[in-house]
Lab assay of single mutants.
Amino acid sequence: AEKTGIVNVSSSLNVREGASTSSKVIGSLSGNTKVTIVGEEGAFYKIEYKGSHGYVAKEYIKDIKDE
């Protein structure tokens, strides 16, 4: 049951290796980017990222929809 969301930041949002603010940053997404959410862990969504997965803070994702 995948969902999509939109990155809701003015600059960019860090994509992390794990569901923690201390996890390594593996990339970033600019505002209004559409993401595919494959799961959630605590305050983070697990998303599809560059052929693999990454984690982003839930508070910066809006317009969550079921695909």
Rank of each mutant, 00 (worst) to 15 (best):
S11N: 13
D66G: 09
N32A: 10
K24C: 06
F44R: 01
N14P: 14
V15H: 00
K65V: 13
Y45G: 00
N14T: 13
E67L: 10
N14F: 11
E59C: 06
G51W: 07
L13R: 02
E41W: 08
E41P: 01
K3A: 07
G54V: 03
N14H: 14
Y60K: 07
Y60M: 10
L29T: 01
V9D: 07
S30T: 12
G54C: 03
K46E: 10
T21F: 14
V56R: 00
E59G: 07
A19W: 05
T21P: 15
A57K: 11
L29Y: 03
K24S: 07
V56G: 01
I37W: 01
I47M: 02
E48F: 08
K24Q: 12
E40G: 05
G31K: 15
D66P: 12
Y60A: 14
T33E: 10
T36G: 05
K50E: 12
V38G: 02
N32R: 10
G5M: 05
I6S: 05
A19K: 03
E41Y: 09
R16H: 15
F44P: 00
V56W: 00
I47H: 00
S11V: 13
A57W: 10
I6P: 02
K62D: 11
N32P: 05
T33H: 09
I61T: 02
K50W: 07
V35P: 01
G18I: 08
G18N: 14
A1H: 11
L13Q: 03
S20R: 06
R16Q: 14
K34I: 11
G27L: 04
A43E: 13
I61H: 01
T21R: 11
I64P: 06
Y45R: 01
K3E: 04
T36V: 15
E40K: 04
E2V: 14
A1R: 06
T33P: 02
I26A: 02
N14K: 15
E48A: 10
I26R: 03
S12F: 13
K50N: 13
E2L: 15
I6V: 14
E67P: 10
E59V: 12
K65H: 15
S20P: 02
V9E: 07
G42A: 07
S11G: 15
A19E: 02
G42S: 06
E17Y: 08
G27E: 01
G39N: 05
T33K: 05
S28H: 15
V7K: 02
G42Y: 06
E48D: 14
E17R: 06
S22C: 07
K46A: 06
A57Y: 15
I6G: 03
I64E: 07
G31T: 14
G5E: 02
A1Q: 12
T33D: 09
E17W: 08
K3T: 09
Y49E: 01
V38L: 15
A1I: 15
N32K: 08
G54A: 11
I26E: 01
V7T: 08
Y45F: 12
G54K: 02
Y49G: 01
G18F: 13
A57R: 14
S23R: 04
T33F: 06
K24M: 11
V15A: 01
G18H: 15
G42Q: 06
E2M: 13
